[in-house]
Amino acid sequence: MNFDKELDARGLSCPLPILKTKKSLNDLASGQVLKVVSTDPGSVKDMQAFSNQTGNPLLSQSEEGKEFVFFLRKK
């Protein structure tokens, strides 16, 4: 998937992946896509909740080895 910015949240625990995702989205324009890579298993549910609450669509999420990859589109 194409993306406009990548956030490396590897090694970070709750709530840092979400806080950094929020900050990274601030730098994007509406419609642009943010890729987030995390290693925190809790971030899977948290990213869905973040997307639901903020209205920034979660385009996809996948597990690659011990990493979790998310694509969010800024609303």
């Binding site: 709530p15 979400i18 806080l19 909740a49 903020t54």
Partner: peptide, 11 residues
């Protein structure tokens, strides 16, 4: 602090 920062991130 965790809940406050996260809630702010959720808008």
């Amino acid at each position: 602090f965790i809940l406050a920062t996260t809630a702010a991130a959720l808008g």
